[in-house]
Design a protein around this nucleic acid. Structure first.
Lengths: 212, 212, 212, 212
DNA sequence: CGCTAACCGAGACGGTACGTCTCGTCTTACG
DNA sequence: CGTAAGACGAGACGTACCGTCTCGGTTAGCG
């Protein structure tokens, strides 16, 4: 399940194989172009030139600019980590600040909303975003919740379904709130804000669990 | 403070005045084009044609496509209302569902994230989004909170600053969660989800207030 | 019946009129590009650049490279003249040499056969060649024949139809022979060859007239 | 002197020899593609696919599209014959009609002028055309003239040089006239026209012989 | 009988040009 | 002066071929 799978080999492999370095050079060039130009002024030709590659090579691997950009930024989200800071509150605060820092990076800031916007009219793109970014990062919620349960901060989830539903809710709330604060409200996600958001979640989680 | 203020009349008025109907026809045409084509395939020329107007007229009133789109969709957000449903929980649920319905409309769905994305590289646009959309809709949080205080569901805010900070937090959390659920996770914002989100917030609000 | 008529004004005139100088600059640039690059390496983008014009401007006026090239070279054929040299033999020799000289010019040499080749698959192009080049130059045959009749070198044509048919034959023979000698056989059309061809025609004309 | 001689074996032969059937399949595929697409839309990749052959195989044998096309159509010209019809006039008429029929075939029609056009800028191509097509078909003039001399319709040529010069003239006139009538004037080469052309030539030949 | 050199198919590669589209500006004539 | 119409310079789009290259795999003939 390679990230770049636009019309791969039909059955086995015949002919010259795709250059491995080209792929990485392109993604790197894409990120550089995002930083310099932003999403809307990024052009395929420019990326190709930066990567020292022909435009055709880009189109051979990605159907369009959006798919390319998703692949280029998806890897950045994998840098997010959830070290054990001893309490759920601390863990949440940490990931919130980390995520906000990621969103402050110019390549992420300009690209994320743009591809989400495009995905509202492009089902394959939406799917690629889901698999490359969204679903991958739910691991953070999962890990945080399980660690909190291990610590006894949260009750063990009896109903598996209910646990997953709550995980999803938390994910949308945390990710959504950080994105909205950062990109829409355009106000800083500092430690104080992260603390307030964590407090809100912790308090709310109890209520949701009771209501369950 | 008209929403379209790109170089008004210099000092008094001379020559032929601007057609009043043209402005509304353009915004209407813009919304229609958003529905049919989505943001990225919407073009100024097409909007002009639909509105029966020359391209020049568009550029005389809006600096570019993004400013035009913001004005075209901003008005839709004013339709959001907060009827008194008797409890804070019900009020929140109602506005969440209403907001989700708004985001499901094709013109809003395709446009909102797009202009936010563009605004990360365009300060005037960001400002226009803030004044035309974001700040205007904070009224909903304000109204909901005051009504809840009146009902006694929430304590009266002693510190005005702290109240505003919490209002902002709630706004980012609610708006962000709904947007993320709807556009990024691409899963439905139904009554059940709205109920869970409301429960989370109500529970959290208590905690935040205590911590405050 | 302007030579450049690719989708001109729908009914009357509205909007900015087409730049007159642009048209001439484009044709001039086309001829220059033909000289330097030849037909097959001539590109629309290059012509546009040479003419200091946008590619769109070319496509607004000509449907494709072939139509442009026909217009660019057609005017060169109008330079052919038929001065009265006192005898039909001399007149023929002169026009043969003149035509050969025209075919030796690099822009004509490379372009003429190319557009004729393309015209075998492109009816509008064939028509444009006929009206812009072929039919226009039949004037030379007409003038030569009438002058010879006036001199008494040829009998006055009784049957108008037969005269036209013979004119066409002569045109195809002269033009075809020169083109074939010059471009296919790739041998020089010098005075000696022109003399031989003229002699052949003069001798043949008598026979055709008798047979006629 | 094989027709396909693009960088044969260096000194002797080693390794696998070239597939004989591939060569014919490629020429056949080229003709088919010419019929369907015409010269300008014929592509090497398409020919390769039609022939069930790799593009590499084409380039191993022909330097480029034009050389390939010349070889593909050259063989068609060998079908021209000059049966003895009893008189020079009849022989000429016959070959004229035959040649016109050949030029009416879509593969010939589209290819011949195209490669001639290209040859004005490509000396090796011009040479290939001369040896593969032009010089080969002069045999028809030669045979016709000798047969006419044998019949006593034409005087025996005293001066060998003069005879060759006249042969060339006749070749250019006949071939040129037919091509021009057929492809440039785009009018039919029917029996009547062939008769007129033959009459012109026969009459002219006498004059040229006397003048010669 | 196994080497080995040249062949073969497939298809990716860096390029170039295509013809279309949209941008935002400019130039008309009309009201 | 505002307007509708539409041409303009600029430049990106995504596609199609070009001619070259790199693969893995035949297929001869020579040793």
């Amino acid at each position: 399940m390679s990230p770049m799978c636009h019309s791969s080999s039909p059955r086995g492999r015949a002919g010259r194989p795709r250059s491995a370095e080209a792929g990485e050079a392109i993604l790197e060039a894409t990120r550089a172009a995002l930083v310099e130009l932003g999403w809307s002024k990024l052009s395929m030709g420019d990326v190709a030139t930066r990567a020292g590659v022909a435009k055709t090579t880009l189109y051979r691997r990605w159907a369009n600019k959006n798919e390319l950009v998703v692949d280029a930024v998806a890897v950045l989200f994998d840098e997010l980590e959830l070290p054990d800071l001893g309490s759920l509150q601390a863990d949440i605060e940490h990931v919130v600040v980390q995520f906000a820092a990621l969103l402050e990076r110019p390549e992420t800031k300009t690209a994320l909303m743009a591809v989400v916007a495009e995905s509202t009219r492009d089902e394959p793109l939406r799917e690629r975003i889901r698999t490359s970014i969204v679903e991958r990062q739910k691991r953070l919620v999962l890990a945080g919740r399980e660690r909190a349960q291990a610590r006894g901060e949260l009750p063990a989830g009896r109903d598996e379904e209910a646990v997953a539903v709550t995980d999803d809710l938390i994910f949308d709330v945390v990710a959504g709130a950080v994105v909205h604060r950062s990109l829409v409200s355009a106000e800083p996600v500092d430690d104080a804000w992260a603390t307030r958001l964590s407090a809100l979640l912790l308090g709310g989680l109890g209520a949701v669990a009771e209501a369950g």
